[in-house]
């Protein structure tokens, strides 16, 4: 059986800040090192709406006016099909601005409210102070408790509802809102997080969980061949030390 994964980059022109690319590179390379080719697709405003051919979707961060620009397209054009695909187990990984748009709404600094996808049971309101710095999180997303490291830079404060699980608990940094110690949100295989830096290359276990779930959804039970992660793990440890966690 020849394996293959189809990776969809959502709104690369609008939702693409420094480091977002690293997440895509990590997914592609870690699949490639196991002999699994990944086909890269991108979907912009006015395009697509059919998510049945994709195995993993990624959406990065954006500024307020970009989120505003794509908000309606995301909800109306991509919404129905994307939601059905997530119910069916599609793997979705979103960072920061992309994460905020998967919730019920995002209220910007000026008070303007952008309706979100309501894929994740969460709501985001802009705060007055930006939450910036190294972020370390403890997460059991992969089944066992592991750490996630990265950097956060957001003014939005996200509060989770009862339908989602947090991606993890904050060990150092702010996370969703700087108050309740939660970071990120998970519903089925759909993940939102404030971690960038980039997140996936320095947290190879998370990359592998996403790849594994995508492969299992498509090909059934799957064993992911372990890789030599000495370089990644060293960076992971240093990031924890530098964060002072």
């Amino acid at each position: 059986m020849s394996l293959e994964l189809n990776l969809c980059h959502m709104y690369p022109e609008q939702m693409n800040l420094y480091g977002d690319r690293g997440n895509l590179i990590a997914l592609v390379m870690r699949a490639r090192w196991r002999g699994i080719p990944v086909r890269y697709h991108s979907v912009g405003p006015g395009e697509g709406g059919d998510f049945s051919g994709y195995d993993i979707c990624f959406m990065g961060g954006g500024q307020d006016h970009e989120q505003q620009l794509i908000g309606e397209d995301l909800v109306r054009r991509k919404g129905p099909d994307l939601k059905a695909a997530v119910e069916d187990g599609l793997v979705v990984f979103t960072v920061c601005g992309g994460y905020q748009l998967l919730g019920e709404y995002y209220t910007m600094g000026g008070g303007l409210k952008i309706p979100g996808l309501t894929l994740l049971d969460c709501r985001t309101d802009a705060g007055t102070r930006r939450m910036i710095g190294n972020l370390v999180v403890s997460s059991s997303f992969g089944g066992t408790v592991k750490t996630l490291v990265g950097f956060e830079n957001h003014s939005g404060r996200t509060r989770l509802g009862g339908e989602v699980e947090p991606l993890g608990r904050v060990l150092k940094g702010f996370g969703n809102n700087g108050e309740d110690q939660t970071e990120g949100a998970v519903y089925k295989n759909c993940v939102g997080t404030y971690l960038h830096g980039s997140a996936l290359p320095k947290n190879p276990w998370l990359t592998d969980v996403l790849l594994l779930r995508a492969l299992e959804r498509r090909y059934g039970r799957f064993d992911l061949e372990p890789l030599d992660d000495v370089v990644e793990q060293a960076a992971h440890r240093v990031a924890i030390r530098l964060a002072g966690a």
């Binding site: 690369p12 022109e13 895509l24 592609v28 390379m29 990944v38 890269y40």
Partner: peptide, 9 residues
Amino acid sequence: PTVGIPTAR
């Protein structure tokens, strides 16, 4: 395989 992935716009 990562060649086509765009950088931050």
